[in-house]
Amino acid sequence: MNYDRQINQYLITLAQYMSRLDTQQANEVIREIESHIYDVIDNAEIEGRPIAIDEVLARFGSPRQLAQQYSDHLLMGTPPPPGFTALRKIKKSVTAGVFYGSGIVGYILGAVLIIIGILKVFMPESVGVWVNDHGQSIILGVVEQAPLSSDELLGIWLIPVGIATGSLITYLTYRLLSVLKQYREH
């Protein structure tokens, strides 16, 4: 009996779900599974046993489930955090410059926002965000005197907004570096 069509359909679907991996890795997995399935069929035919190809394929699980098991450890070791799905498509070529650059920018930006939020508590008149009358420039930071012809944005809300945003950026930078690290190590 010819099972090729059913097996091919399974492998094609599996290949689609494996597309997030390197082509070589995906091909290797598919080749091995194909070899296994045909070995099972050959053995059954030699022993004169009937073959339930549905059962053979079911033991692998659905193509989606199977691909998920491979991709979980191939890509991350652990699944990526929500929101970082797009990073799965990054090839394994994250340079040291990108890695450390992302870290420095992210952590400094996060730290600055947190510090400004805290300073606003103690220096409410000198710390803030101002925008000029025409909306052409924004000043963020610590000043001796509030800029002339400017309106202050946020006011006292700069404290929670600065600290929360800074913390979020710091956390996201940490998670980003965790993901990028996987691509530097392998």
């Binding site: 997995v29 091995e32 599974i33 296994h36 033991r59 692998f60 699980g61 489930q65 199977l66 098991q69 491979y70 450890h73 191939l74 392998h186």
Partner: peptide, 15 residues
Amino acid sequence: ITEGTLYPLLDRLKK
């Protein structure tokens, strides 16, 4: 165990 458990596990151990 089943095939669906074995092969991803072998792949992880290889990695």
